[in-house]
């Protein structure tokens, strides 16, 4: 019964539903892209250092344990409400898993492989591009996959700070005790998270070189 009513709600308000869905996906995708652009190079760079790495990795580990809602709540007094503060908070949320996996992925490349690469005359950049990154691909992608699921789920909470997305239906549904409307947000949000997990799982397998 509830599902039918939820479906009827979508049919009655297609603009609101698809608008929210689009915002949700845009917000998540942008946050994930930003986080990858920041955390992947940083993780790779940290793997080549000693001192900076331990501090950054400790920070990232703490960051990973922060609840999503807390991150959003912390951002609001600083940046206010709306799409951009939500994007900022979600990016923050996605950084730790990508950073940690990029760092670990590069660090676990066997030292003798790097030694052979260097001994044969690869530059530092060539070692990173041709050897370390391809070997670390499965681990790095596992990090992006974790971050993707976290961001898509976390984006539901963006509604609390006016970020829009599917969370709008959930908060409104809870406020008005309107269960069908709540499901209009909850079910697609869940499916999106599952879909993101699948998508990045496939990408991870497709991009892993066959020798690994």
């Amino acid at each position: 019964m509830l599902l039918v009513e939820a479906w009827q709600f979508i049919v009655a308000h297609p603009d609101r539903f698809f608008g929210a869905l689009l915002t949700h996906v845009t917000l998540s995708a942008a946050a994930l892209a930003l986080a990858t652009a920041i955390a992947l190079p940083t993780g790779v760079w940290l793997a080549g250092t000693r001192r900076a790495a331990s501090i950054a990795i400790a920070t990232a580990n703490v960051g990973r344990t922060l609840p999503s809602l807390a991150v959003l709540a912390l951002v609001m007094p600083l940046l206010g409400t709306g799409f951009l503060p939500s994007l900022f908070a979600l990016t923050l949320l996605a950084l730790p898993p990508i950073l940690l996996n990029s760092y670990t992925g590069i660090r676990q490349v066997e030292p003798e492989i790097v030694d052979a690469a260097r001994g044969m005359g690869m530059t530092r950049g060539e070692i990173v591009r041709k050897v370390e990154l391809p070997i670390a691909t499965p681990v790095i992608f596992a990090g992006i996959r974790t971050a993707a699921v976290q961001v898509v789920s976390g984006a539901v909470l963006a509604a609390y700070i006016g970020g829009g997305g599917l969370g709008d239906f959930i908060t409104a549904g809870i406020a008005m005790m309107a269960l069908p409307q709540l499901l209009v947000g909850a079910i697609p949000a869940t499916l999106l998270a599952l879909g993101a997990d699948q998508l990045f799982g496939r990408l991870q397998r497709a991009l892993t070189p066959k020798g690994l």
């Binding site: 066997e110 030694d115 052979a116 001994g119 020798g211």
Partner: peptide, 11 residues
């Protein structure tokens, strides 16, 4: 350059 652990590129 040849080393004991060979260090072939696995990928």
């Amino acid at each position: 350059y040849v080393i004991q652990q060979v260090g072939l590129f696995p990928h």
